[in-house]
């Protein structure tokens, strides 16, 4: 009988059926086949792309996006012990946080989850993060991407402050900076000197993947 675990995993993710997805992934793990583990990771990545498209097209709502992200997280957690020996390559590190004075974190947390599932190592600094703290984390972790969330107009100036701190410390050229959140726009990205503005988590993680793809 053919093993349809991977198809079941994909259905689990796209039908928001956590139980089915986890049962499928346990079958894959029980098989002990490294190549299948790698394929399962690819299925998660491809399914999340479909999920993201559904959200961007207005077909899915935020809670569905969040839950698909949760299923992906649990699946990846189950697979991760097997991935160390030749599993999926890390795409690099993302340092992320919500700027000083701003406590909104739902959006940032979704980005964190999607970035992790896409293979990034994520350092989440939380909310109300000062420029000094962002810069120190960049120095410590040497990320490929810095992500900042900002939902309040009153805290928009913090973005420029972080980028200035990176410049002063000679760190700005070593990474890409992406910003997101209700108050922002592409113009804000240009004004503060970020590389990009992401209107949603899916677009943001897509950008990060492009940036980290080998040339």
């Amino acid at each position: 009988m053919p093993d349809d675990s991977l198809a079941q995993l994909q259905r689990g993710l796209l039908d928001l059926d956590m139980e089915a997805a986890l049962a499928a992934v346990h079958n894959v793990i029980a098989g002990g086949n490294q190549a299948r583990v790698k394929e399962a990771v690819d299925v998660v990545t491809r399914s999340l792309e479909v999920v993201g498209k559904r959200f961007q097209d207005g077909e899915w709502y935020l809670a569905e996006l969040v839950y698909a992200g949760e299923i992906a997280k649990d699946v990846m957690n189950a697979l991760s012990p097997l991935m160390q020996s030749g599993g999926s390559p890390s795409r690099g590190t993302l340092v992320i946080g919500t700027v000083a004075g701003d406590l909104h974190d739902l959006g940032k947390n979704i980005v964190v989850n999607f970035a992790r599932s896409a293979g990034f190592a994520v350092v989440d600094l939380g909310v109300d993060v000062s420029a000094q703290k962002f810069a120190a984390a960049v120095r410590e972790h040497g990320p490929a991407v810095l992500g900042m969330s900002c939902l309040l107009t009153s805290t928009e100036s913090q973005l420029a402050g972080v980028i200035d701190a990176l410049k002063t410390q000679g760190l700005r050229d070593k990474l890409k900076v992406v910003i997101g959140g209700a108050a922002l726009s592409e113009r804000a990205a240009r004004d503060v000197g970020a590389d990009a503005f992401a209107p949603d988590a899916v677009t943001g993680v897509d950008m990060m993947k492009k940036w980290s793809a080998p040339a």
Binding site: G58, Y61, L62, A63, E64, L106, G107, A182, D200
Partner: peptide, 12 residues
């Protein structure tokens, strides 16, 4: 609501 639409599907 959030920036682009309701947090939950209206039917939900």
């Amino acid at each position: 609501g959030q920036k682009t639409g309701p947090l939950l599907r209206p039917e939900l």
